[in-house]
Design a protein around this nucleic acid. Structure first.
Length: 228
DNA sequence: GCGACAG
DNA sequence: ATCTTGTCGC
């Protein structure tokens, strides 16, 4: 899967159709590859301009190693379920600037826990051809079971139409704090997605790659300025 | 027709 | 997402 998968300049209806087609290409298996670098991607929007940030951290030390950004006019409105058509293009532009690609990437949004199984982490996983994980701060679809109150507790995110089907995981990344919604994007399974997500969490609710990406997308620096 | 609805 | 002060909890 490389090269252009589909056009981005489409109508909302066409976008949904593209998502339906793309789901057949997803590979939800983990190949046990070595992970030395983890990436984090996020996009901020000011006025009519979107800025994407791709940050790379060492794994499992989580030390920031580098970052790149890209900007462009937002090409698509925010429509629940079609987020990748709004943020995808600028993410691809930033990704092209990376010298070394991470072995795994965490996204701020859903993976397969999406109405058509194609959340932004799954969609971009196909474009980038790299393992991706969706870590969302809130639910898009499905019925969320309640995980225990302690960090590391996990519960199922079930398909509302078929409770036997697990869409993703509701993960407590920090004690007594609202859980996050984890689902595999591409080239990984749910169990490993949850495992890597927890291993990327330091002392905050969100994984470090996503926190750094959010910070850089908002205009911040990757690391504090060195004194002297 | 009425809610729900990633970022 | 973005607009925004003080406040509560770890």
């Amino acid at each position: 899967m490389d090269g252009k998968l589909h056009p981005w300049a489409v109508t909302p209806k066409q976008a949904a159709g593209i998502q339906m087609e793309l789901r057949h290409f997803l590979d939800l298996t983990w190949d046990e590859r070595a992970v030395d670098l983890v990436g984090g991607i996020d996009v901020s929007v000011v006025r009519d301009t979107a800025r994407a940030a791709v940050v790379v951290l060492g794994f499992p030390d989580l030390r920031p190693r580098g970052s790149v950004t890209a900007e462009m006019k937002t090409p698509f409105p925010y429509v629940p379920g079609l987020l990748s058509f709004r943020e995808g293009p600028v993410i691809l532009a930033a990704w092209e600037k990376l010298d070394w690609k991470p072995d795994l990437v965490l996204f701020d949004g859903q993976g397969t826990a999406h109405p058509r199984g194609m959340g932004i982490a799954a969609h971009m996983g196909l474009w980038l051809d790299v393992p991706t994980i969706g870590v969302a701060k809130s639910r898009l679809c499905g019925v969320a079971m309640e995980p225990g109150p302690r960090r590391g507790a996990v519960a199922d995110l079930l398909d509302e139409a078929d409770p036997r089907r697990v869409l993703g995981a509701v993960v407590r990344t920090k004690d007594s704090t609202h859980p996050v919604f984890v689902s595999p994007g591409h080239r990984i399974d749910l169990a490993h997605a949850v495992e890597f997500t927890l291993r990327c969490v330091a002392s905050h609710r969100l994984p470090e790659p996503i926190r750094w990406a959010h910070h850089v997308a908002g205009g911040g620096a990757l690391a504090p300025a060195q004194p002297g």
